[in-house]
């Protein structure tokens, strides 16, 4: 039952009455607290501008990540560097598994081409040299819907996938008609579609120092990341 000192108001609405109880102290206190917090928070961030806004927070997050993960950026590999691991059976097998999971949707189970081009002929849209294939897989081709796999796959995995794709060459599985420029075997392009990158510097993979040398900026900076996505 109610306390003795509770006062019933004379209000009576369809039999409903009301007590004249004061506001609970903790309720009033917490209400004031939230009001003070609201004023303080709004003042700190919006009026005084002392706190970081969301875009500043974002820039900081990106800067921190750039430093923290610098060593894991995709290296820029020369043809010979790619060739050095591309023939390895274990690497190709690993690449086959990745291909099945990631690439087959667009390029077909055997690389015969579906949404993307046939990879089993000797015609190449973005260059068939080992370094070019590695780079195309890593950075993707935004305009064609080829994802930049460096955002998803680790460098080792991209190496493996490149090895597998290079191993498909001239297996000539029946599928999509050849697209791009026919290149002679073994990295002697009949007609280079673009100036060969021919990187002079030999970047040691997994060293941050080598990264700035990468011409198309494969580093996951925001700009490149977006470009790769789109």
């Amino acid at each position: 039952m109610a306390d003795k000192d509770e006062r019933l108001l004379e209000h009576n609405y369809d039999g409903i009455q009301e007590y004249d109880n004061p506001l609970p102290g903790w309720w009033t206190a917490l209400f004031w607290l939230t009001i003070v917090f609201a004023g303080g928070y709004y003042g700190y961030y919006q009026i005084l501008g002392m706190g970081e806004n969301r875009y500043q927070e974002y820039e900081n997050e990106i800067k921190e990540a750039d430093v923290k993960y610098a060593q894991f950026k995709l290296p820029d590999l020369s043809d010979s560097e790619v060739k050095a691991f591309a023939g390895d059976k274990a690497t190709i097998d690993k690449g086959a598994a990745i291909f099945k999971e990631r690439c087959a949707v667009c390029h077909g189970d055997k690389g015969e081409g579906k949404i993307g081009p046939n990879l089993t002929d000797n015609a190449w849209i973005h260059g068939g040299k080992p370094g070019q294939v590695f780079k195309t897989i890593g950075n993707g081709v935004g305009s064609k819907g080829m994802p930049a796999w460096r955002l998803t796959l680790k460098t080792d995995e991209i190496k493996a996938a490149s090895s597998f794709v290079l191993s498909l060459r001239n297996t000539n599985v029946a599928g999509k008609a050849p697209q791009g420029v026919v290149e002679a075997d073994e990295a002697a392009p009949v007609a280079a579609p673009a100036p060969a990158p021919a990187p002079v510097a030999v970047p040691a993979p997994a060293t941050p120092a080598a990264d700035p040398a990468a011409a198309p900026a494969p580093a996951p900076t925001p700009a490149a990341a977006e470009a790769g996505k789109i």
Partner: peptide, 25 residues
């Protein structure tokens, strides 16, 4: 709630003042 709860419980509403303050706020 303000109608059916006191009706069903047959009890007065706890605080008229609280009603006023929480309604307007």
């Amino acid at each position: 709630m303000y109608y059916f709860m006191p009706k069903a419980a047959d009890r007065p509403v706890f605080s008229y003042k609280l009603s006023i303050l929480h309604f307007w706020s």
